[in-house]
Design a protein around this nucleic acid. Structure first.
Lengths: 203, 203
DNA sequence: GCATAGTTCGAACGATCGTTCGAATATGGA
DNA sequence: TCCATATTCGAACGATCGTTCGAACTATGC
């Protein structure tokens, strides 16, 4: 069953590109058929319907993001690295991943509420784990910050990072690494360094 | 013709709420009829069609945002206020406006590409003026920063501020003023203070 | 009370949507 | 070569969409 899985994967990637360009709701199954070279009916051999297609795209992408972030942090050593370094690594991973997978991550961010029922709940469960991961990092970085402000800061950081699907051009002047460095510098400089003026750069 | 304008305004506000809750494309004209108490055909007396409805909502909201920002800056004095204070005032106005008009500003942000043709171009023209305004503020705040990084920082700030439609709850623990203060603190502390460690707070 | 303009709406139209179904074709071991 | 399974697809279905049209209702000046 290898060729089947490969064709499904290719189908998901192509569909993600179309969803990213036109939006989920204004993309028709006929658009997807034209973009993938398959026939209208042929797509239903790989996917139960349009909403399951979106679900598979989002779940596949979000699982990779979460696993990648955990692997990045694990590579830093078992918990006794500098909290600021760990936060910086998280930001760098998120931004570079989103910049390298603009179509999929745009579908993830922009169509976050286009799923319904059980499928919506499943994707939200992954999101919860990912948000919790960042909040635990912020707790280590700024333990004296009020919880309300720390939670809002987490969403502010996600805003900076996720918003790039609205403007970032991979062919433009700023490369993903530099963008990640800028966002990390802004957030860490503004949030983490507010109280403890320890050196940040050069992990 | 006063009652006509009032009913149109009320119609736009109601429709904006529905667009914000369900999304533009999955909202049907029948949904809007039910939410406004009008009949399906009756709405076409006030609006040429569904897309013009979205256009009027976005243009009305964006015009207010731009005018409000300009008025806020003008109130600070004719150009010889501290650049950091001017940036802080811009951020505070943006965040409090967005928090106070969550439905309209969500439609503005999330449905930014749901318009087509001339209508899309018109709204983008206002957006351009608004982005240029922030970039001019950043130029005064950090004149030594490379232009590429300054432009990316502008979008990062917009990301922080616009993303709130995805998570902010006005009935929650953090009020708009405090949220604006947090975002201003993070961005100014991380971006503007990177080189010139001048005092920021207390304007 | 009547004419005019302003406003509302029931009913229907054509278009397009997601999905289905059975037949047609390709694939691979015996 | 033949059969069973895997895969593809043309054609159509019912549902729902945005929009239209002409009639009906309302308000106002005379």
């Amino acid at each position: 069953m290898r060729p089947y899985d490969e064709r499904l994967d290719h189908f998901l990637s192509r569909a993600a590109k179309v969803f990213a360009d036109q939006g989920y709701h204004s993309t028709t199954m006929r658009d997807l058929a034209a973009a993938t070279g398959m026939s209208l009916a042929g797509m239903y051999y790989y996917v139960r319907g349009k909403e399951e297609l979106l679900h598979r795209i989002q779940e596949r992408c979000f699982t990779r993001v979460l696993a990648g972030a955990e692997a990045t942090l694990a590579a830093l050593g078992s918990g006794h690295a500098d909290p600021v370094d760990r936060l910086q690594a998280f930001i760098r991973h998120h931004v570079t991943f989103f910049a390298a997978n603009l179509a999929e991550t745009k579908v993830l961010s922009h169509e976050a509420n286009s799923l319904t029922g059980e499928r919506h709940r499943k994707v939200n469960a992954i999101k919860r784990r990912y948000v919790d991961l960042l909040e635990s990092l912020l707790r280590d970085v700024a333990p004296d910050e009020p919880a309300v402000e720390r939670s809002a800061a987490a969403y502010a950081l996600f805003g900076m990072m996720n918003w790039i699907y609205n403007w970032y051009d991979p062919a433009g002047e700023i490369d993903p690494e530099r963008l990640a460095g800028l966002i990390a510098r802004v957030f860490i400089g503004g949030f983490a360094d507010a109280r403890s003026p320890s050196p940040v750069h050069g992990g």
